[in-house]
Amino acid sequence: MEWNEILTAIFLALGVLISLTGSLGLLRMPDFYTRLHTAGKSDSLAQTFILGGLIFVTDNWQVAVRLLMIILLLFFTAPTATHAITKAARLDGLEPWRRG
């Protein structure tokens, strides 16, 4: 493997690990608000790592620009979507879960 492929592999592994954490959290957490924590946070970092890692293996500048564009797009839309969901749930009167 070339050095850039190794770098990409590391980034992909990190991103996939974070992504799996988010999915598992979504499954395990007790209520909607706690699920927000795992889903909203892991998504933005996981996609940055995976798509950012892919930049190292491409030699085409158009592909690199597109990858950067997707990263920025998701970086701005993901938290906005998460917040929109939260606000809708809050207005609907969904109560947070408490331990005990």
Partner: peptide, 24 residues
């Protein structure tokens, strides 16, 4: 901050005891 935040979530999600005490 995002990296720190993910590390925090990472530790809690993979912990079998699920150490959270949510509050507003």
């Amino acid at each position: 901050q995002i990296v720190l935040s993910n590390w925090d979530v990472f530790k809690r999600v993979w912990d079998p005891a699920l150490p959270v005490s949510p509050q507003l």
